[in-house]
């Protein structure tokens, strides 16, 4: 376990101890800033509505994925780019263990950065509207969304130097356009897994009636879900499945492909 935690420790410093994390932190804070501006200019009800229809999709569908894409791609990608992969890989550690430790580190880094933005948005909502009930839901949704994106991006980052560009294109085309338009494939959308967890937590087993949700609010969330059923455990199982496949795939890639070019 020492090796596992050593990799996590160094990867965390590698990913968030750099200049790029400042830019990502600023990006993470954008939805909270917009929500604050809205909250200062409109009433509580409109602010709450904007949170669900504007800030939430901006957090889970834009800022969280962009942060997870950047840091996920860098977790093993940076090791290859900076040639330090030899220092890491030429050690008596199973490739899957390296991949798993890297995944946990990239997830933690992404959650720290993206989660701070989500947390800030929840605080703004609580401070302006007085509702603090949704903070837990949005943090869980952020954790789920970051894990899903990081797991995919880690593999991509290991394979190609253009992982971030490919990841952003994937976010725009598949996650943004295709799964939004075709409800049949919406269940594959990672950020909707986060929304599903969020909706599952705020509604519990009483979709539409828990926390006194009004029909209009349910309709807002249903728009975001694009046909995906709300439920935190379903979302957790899905992203854990993606994470396991990612670790397995990286194990195979690190064994069968050249570690350096």
């Amino acid at each position: 376990m020492t090796r596992f935690f050593a990799i996590i420790r160094v990867t965390l410093i590698q990913l968030i101890g750099r200049r790029r994390s400042i830019g990502l932190l600023v990006l993470a804070a954008v939805p909270a800033g917009i929500l604050l501006l809205v909250g200062l200019n409109v009433g509580d009800r409109e602010t709450e509505e904007f949170f669900r229809t504007g800030a939430l999709p901006l957090v889970l569908g834009v800022t969280v994925p962009i942060i997870a894409i950047t840091l996920g791609a860098g977790s093993l990608g940076d090791e290859r780019t900076h040639k330090t992969i030899s220092y890491l890989a030429l050690r008596p550690i199973r490739r899957e263990v390296i991949a798993a430790a890297k995944l946990v580190a990239a997830w933690l880094a992404s959650f720290l950065v993206a989660g701070s933005g989500a947390f800030l948005a929840a605080i703004v909502l609580g401070a302006t509207v007085g509702s603090w009930d949704e903070m837990f839901a949005i943090m869980v949704a952020t954790a789920i969304t970051t894990l899903g994106f990081v797991a995919i991006m880690q593999v991509l980052g290991y394979i190609t130097d253009r992982a971030v560009i490919i990841g952003l294109a994937y976010l725009l085309i598949w996650e943004g356009i295709v799964t939004g338009a075709a409800s049949q494939v919406a269940t594959t959308s990672i950020w909707r897994m986060g929304v599903s967890a969020y909706a599952g937590i705020v509604a519990g087993d009483h979709w539409g009636s828990a926390l006194g949700l009004e029909a209009r609010v349910v309709a807002d969330l249903e728009d975001l879900l694009s046909g995906v059923n709300p439920g935190v455990w379903g979302a957790v199982v899905k992203v854990l499945g993606i994470a396991v496949v990612s670790v397995g795939a990286l194990g195979v890639l690190m064994r069968d492909r050249d570690l350096v070019s």
């Binding site: 160094v10 410093i13 590698q14 101890g17 750099r18 900076h82 040639k83 330090t84 992969i85 030899s86 220092y87 030429l90 050690r91 008596p92 550690i93 199973r94 490739r95 350096v260």
Partner: peptide
């Protein structure tokens, strides 16, 4: 991978963690 317990490499590249 157990063989790496008994092997060391100094690569030509600048393979160090600068931070």
């Amino acid at each position: 991978v157990t063989v790496f317990q008994r092997v060391g490499l100094v690569p030509e590249d600048d393979a160090v963690y600068g931070f």
